[in-house]
Simulated scan of single mutants.
Amino acid sequence: MTSQKKVTSTYPSDSTAVADIAAANDSASSEATTDNSPADNGVDLATVFDAYFRPDANTIVCGALDDEKVASLAQAGVELVINLQPDDELSFDEAAAVERAGMHYEHLPINGAADLKQLKILAFDNILRQYHGKKIAMHCGSGNRVGAAIALRAGWLRGRKMDTAMERGRSHGLTKLEQEVHNRLLVPR
């Protein structure tokens, strides 16, 4: 998300003023896109996670968590962690770590393409609705299942067109499941 400043000059032909305005806009844009922002309490989440997507100011999509990553999310002001990994992929008691860090925890295991069913997406939608407007972190192993769930939610539950739903999924980490999600969106729900 970039901020745009509307600046009017009384000297439209002054190339120095135009260059200064362009430089100010570039500076504002780069500041708005850094992850070490006041919105994250100074935490640079992009350096904490290998897989990291930031589709908007209140949404973080990342890969698997550990104690250090949970602490970073809490420090960054995250209020809810949604875990889409099945239990057999977890290496520690994530629920306890998240709750100790003062955040809410929701676990909705999605074990690959076979679990990308409408009931799971409805449950996912319900969680997102409960915490609407809150700062959330959603994760699986790489962000791919999160992106798939977001795309299917956009298409099946929000009535978005195919291109819009797929782009929404990609912005949230959809990669390897892209063809599977595309095929599922072709089937009316």
Rank of each mutant, 00 (worst) to 15 (best):
residue 139 H to E: 07
residue 126 N to A: 14
residue 122 L to K: 12
residue 128 L to G: 08
residue 134 K to A: 09
residue 131 Y to W: 13
residue 129 R to N: 13
residue 142 S to E: 01
residue 132 H to I: 00
residue 140 C to S: 15
residue 131 Y to H: 15
residue 145 R to M: 09
residue 116 L to W: 09
residue 135 K to V: 00
residue 128 L to A: 08
residue 123 A to M: 05
residue 127 I to W: 01
residue 129 R to H: 11
residue 120 K to N: 15
residue 124 F to H: 07
residue 143 G to P: 06
residue 118 Q to E: 15
residue 136 I to W: 01
residue 117 K to E: 15
residue 119 L to E: 14
residue 127 I to N: 02
residue 147 G to F: 02
residue 143 G to F: 04
residue 125 D to G: 13
residue 118 Q to F: 07
residue 132 H to C: 00
residue 115 D to I: 04
residue 131 Y to I: 05
residue 118 Q to W: 08
residue 131 Y to F: 15
residue 125 D to A: 14
residue 134 K to D: 09
residue 144 N to K: 05
residue 147 G to K: 08
residue 147 G to E: 00
residue 123 A to T: 05
residue 133 G to W: 13
residue 141 G to E: 12
residue 136 I to L: 02
residue 138 M to P: 06
residue 118 Q to P: 06
residue 135 K to W: 05
residue 135 K to E: 01
residue 124 F to T: 01
residue 131 Y to A: 02
residue 137 A to E: 09
residue 142 S to L: 09
residue 141 G to H: 10
residue 123 A to G: 07
residue 143 G to C: 03
residue 144 N to G: 06
residue 115 D to R: 11
residue 128 L to H: 08
residue 129 R to S: 11
residue 125 D to K: 14
residue 146 V to Y: 03
residue 123 A to E: 12
residue 128 L to K: 14
residue 125 D to V: 02
residue 139 H to L: 12
residue 134 K to W: 10
residue 138 M to E: 08
residue 132 H to P: 00
residue 133 G to Y: 11
residue 133 G to T: 03
residue 116 L to G: 08
residue 122 L to I: 09
residue 140 C to P: 09
residue 129 R to M: 07
residue 139 H to D: 05
residue 121 I to K: 10
residue 140 C to L: 11
residue 145 R to F: 01
residue 130 Q to E: 10
residue 120 K to G: 07
residue 130 Q to Y: 07
residue 133 G to H: 12
residue 134 K to N: 12
residue 132 H to E: 14
residue 147 G to W: 04
residue 117 K to M: 09
residue 136 I to Q: 08
residue 133 G to C: 04
residue 128 L to C: 10
residue 136 I to N: 03
residue 115 D to L: 07
residue 124 F to W: 04
residue 121 I to Q: 08
residue 115 D to N: 13
residue 134 K to S: 13
residue 146 V to I: 12
residue 124 F to V: 01
residue 136 I to S: 06
residue 117 K to D: 14
residue 125 D to E: 14
residue 136 I to G: 00
residue 142 S to N: 07
residue 141 G to M: 13
residue 123 A to R: 04
residue 138 M to W: 05
residue 120 K to L: 01
residue 122 L to W: 04
residue 115 D to F: 10
residue 139 H to R: 10
residue 128 L to N: 14
residue 146 V to M: 06
residue 118 Q to R: 15
residue 127 I to K: 02
residue 139 H to G: 05
residue 119 L to K: 13
residue 140 C to R: 11
residue 145 R to S: 15
residue 121 I to P: 11
residue 122 L to V: 11
residue 139 H to A: 04
residue 121 I to F: 08
residue 125 D to I: 02
residue 141 G to P: 06
